[in-house]
Structure formats: C-alpha cells, structure tokens
C-alpha cells in the first residue's frame, strides 16, 4: 500500500477501475432511464391535471376526471413528501415481506427513481403549461383543435422548452440521489466506493475518486442539456422567400425555383 495520498488513489484506480466504472455506468443508466420515464410520467400527469372541466360536459366524464385527478394528487403528494431512501426500503422490502414479490433489484431501482422523478416532474410540467400564454390555447381552440391536439402540437413543445432547465436539474439530482439505492444493494457508484473503501480502510481516497466521477457525470450531462436547449431554440435568423430572381442573394431563398423543383419532383 503506497504511503502518499495520490499513490493510494492511483493504487485503488489500478486495482478497482473496472468496479468504479461499472458503478458509474449503473448510476448513469438508472439516472438517465428514470429521468426519461419520470419526464414521460410528468407529461402525462401534467396533461391530465390541466384538462379543463366545462359546465356543459357529460357528468360521467366529470366524475371520472375528478377521481383521476384526486388519485394523481395523492400520488404526487406521497412521493414528493417522503424521502426516496425510505420509499426504496418500503417498496423493496415491503413487497418481499408482505406480498411475497421478490423484486428484481434493477426493476426496483428504475421503478423507485422513475415514480419519484415523475411526481416532481408532474408539478414542473404543470408549471410549464401554466407559463404558456393562454392566447396560445385560444388560438388553437379557435381553429377547432381538441384539448389533446392543443397540448400535443402547441402547448407541450413550448412548455417542454421552458422546463428544460428543470429537467436538467432533475437529471443531475437523480445522478446523485441514486446513491440512496445502496440501501437495497444496488451496486451503483456510491455502493462500489463504500465497498472498495472497506477493503483497505481507504475511505478518503475511495470517496475522492467517487466524488470526481460524480462531478464528471453531472457536468457532462449539464453541458449536453444546454446544447439541446440551444438546438430547441432553432435559428435566430430566417430566409426570406422571394419570387424576385434579381433579389436572390444571401438571406433569401428563391420561392419560384423552390416551387418548380417541388413540382418536378412530383
């Protein structure tokens, strides 16, 4: 065992690099999948929670909607209001003990982080929807779009852009918070770090490595999300379409030519 700090760090890396990388991979996989599933849950719940109820609606529809909204509300409150670590213990061991379901550890990990993220994202999505000018909804309604079409084509694309920073936040939180899954023995990065630390009593060195790996993952993900945001914003500029062939200079596309090309193509 080397005497210096850096020596011990490089020793651990040489011996256990594979385990660290596997742990980081597990962490990243759970975080990415769970964030994605969480966003999907959030979008669905967000859409359901914002369905307007009108006086003229059929009473059956009103009743169903009320029940669904109540259930979703309870879901959000429970999963936002209890620690994920407690949820993990409760669901994983509870299912084993009382329902005799021996959950696959991977399934348990994805499930717990996903529904947790979903609960947070539902509120984020609702906020995103509320942030869109009601005029957008009215414009869509006025050409005859249904609630679902309005959400799908008009509101969600704009809301999604607005909540991208929050989705990024959630991804980063998930990368870090998967560490609580060590309580149900998921071999993610924290679990690996703890195990390696225990072998040679090198807690400081092992968690130094683990910290750096978490940082690399979170910073990389933040960067990628920023890039995606910029892509969603699209061009700052647009080309004028002109029929004037003499005005066909930069910043313009020739409309007639384009039309002709299309006709020939047909």
């Amino acid at each position: 065992m080397p005497a210096s700090f850096w020596g011990r760090v490089s020793f651990l890396l040489q011996e256990y690099w594979k385990s660290y990388l596997q742990g980081a991979g597990t962490t990243l996989l759970i975080a990415l999948v769970a964030t994605f599933v969480g966003v999907v849950i959030g979008l669905l719940v967000g859409i359901l929670m914002t369905i307007p109820v009108e006086k003229n609606d059929n009473p059956v529809k009103k009743g169903v909607l009320k029940v669904v909204k109540a259930i979703l509300y309870v879901y959000i409150e429970i999963f936002r209001g209890t620690p994920m670590m407690v949820q993990a213990m409760f669901i994983f061991y509870g299912a084993l003990q009382y329902m005799n379901i021996n959950m696959n550890m991977w399934f348990a990990a994805f499930f717990i982080v996903s529904i947790n993220t979903g609960a947070y994202m539902s509120e984020t999505v609702r906020g995103g929807i509320l942030s869109i000018d009601p005029g957008q909804t009215e414009g869509a309604k006025a050409i005859g779009m249904t609630h679902f079409q309005t959400m799908n084509y008009i509101i969600m694309p704009q809301a999604l852009r607005n909540i991208m920073p929050q989705i990024g936040n959630n991804l980063i939180i998930n990368i870090k918070d998967t560490s609580v899954l060590s309580v149900i023995s998921v071999t993610e990065l924290f679990f690996v770090g703890k195990s390696v630390a225990g072998v040679y009593y090198t807690t400081f060195e092992s968690f130094f490595i683990v910290s750096i790996m978490y940082l690399i993952m979170t910073i990389t993900c933040a960067r990628i999300l920023r890039h995606m945001e910029r892509k969603m914003d699209g061009n700052d500029n647009y080309d004028l379409a002109t029929e004037d062939t003499l005005a066909h200079t930069s910043g313009m596309t020739n409309y007639i030519e384009k039309k002709k090309e299309e006709e020939e193509y047909r």
């Binding site: 000018d133 005029g135 957008q136 006025a142 704009q158």
Partner: peptide, 9 residues
Amino acid sequence: FQHFNLFNN
C-alpha cells in the same frame, strides 16, 4: 385575435 395568438413554436 387582438394579440394575434400565432403559435410561437
């Protein structure tokens, strides 16, 4: 509409 309400996206 008064405020156009074009779809911004």
